[in-house]
């Protein structure tokens, strides 16, 4: 089953890439995709426990999450544009600092998505992840005491909730009380 889905995904890619619809090219595609799916079909789906219904649900919620993320990127770019073009003295506006926090997310893929989301939202960039501890660089913040930094943390908590809602909904029930 997993091998067949790998085959289908690769065959769609083959059709888009080749752009030829005659019998010769299609049969070549079937043969080569079958060989690759047979040899390395276990690479794409490492986790055999989750079934396809869960995966499809994840993909669907991930699409919604991507739309929200696109809006965040546009905000971030407007912020960078404003910062780069209208600031007269960088010294007065910028106040970069580095902080770290512990994430509740378990799977590496969810952590990867959270890191990319942090990078694409206004004012923060992920530096590294070690054992679920994220090190984040923020571009403004400490000027107004710890209040602004708290603001950054709250943004990230909001984002972590969204990522958890996509990939690991069970976390939200466990930690729902203290957030």
């Amino acid at each position: 089953m997993f091998g067949f889905v790998t085959f289908l995904l690769m065959f769609v890619l083959w059709i888009v890439m080749s752009g030829q619809f005659d019998l010769f090219h299609l049969s070549l595609g079937v043969i080569s995709c079958a060989i690759v799916a047979r040899m390395s079909g276990d690479l794409l789906f490492q986790d055999r426990q989750t079934d396809f219904r869960t995966r499809f649900g994840q993909a669907w919620r991930f699409a919604h999450f991507t739309l929200w993320l696109l809006w965040q990127i546009i905000t971030a770019n407007l912020y960078i544009l404003q910062l780069a073009l209208t600031t007269r003295k960088m010294v007065e506006v910028l106040d970069p600092h580095i902080f770290s926090f512990k994430s509740h997310l378990k799977t590496p893929f969810a952590q990867f998505v959270l890191a990319n989301a942090i990078t694409l939202t206004p004012g923060t960039v992920t530096i590294r992840i070690v054992d679920g501890v994220f090190t984040v660089h923020a571009i403004t913040g400490q000027a107004a005491g710890d209040l602004e930094q708290l603001d950054n943390i709250q943004d990230i908590n909001e984002m972590e909730r969204r990522v958890a809602a996509v990939f690991e909904p069970e976390i939200l029930q466990n930690t729902g009380g203290d957030k």
């Binding site: 990127i73 546009i74 971030a76 770019n77 960078i80 544009l81 780069a84 600031t87 960088m90 010294v91 910028l94 970069p96 580095i98 990078t119 694409l120 004012g123 960039v125 660089h137 571009i139």
Partner: peptide, 20 residues
């Protein structure tokens, strides 16, 4: 060109490059 250090430049590079 204008941001003062490596980390802040990376902010501009990572976000602006992706969206543009």
């Amino acid at each position: 060109l204008r941001f003062p250090d490596f980390y802040t430049r990376m902010h501009a590079a990572g976000k602006g490059d992706t969206l543009s």
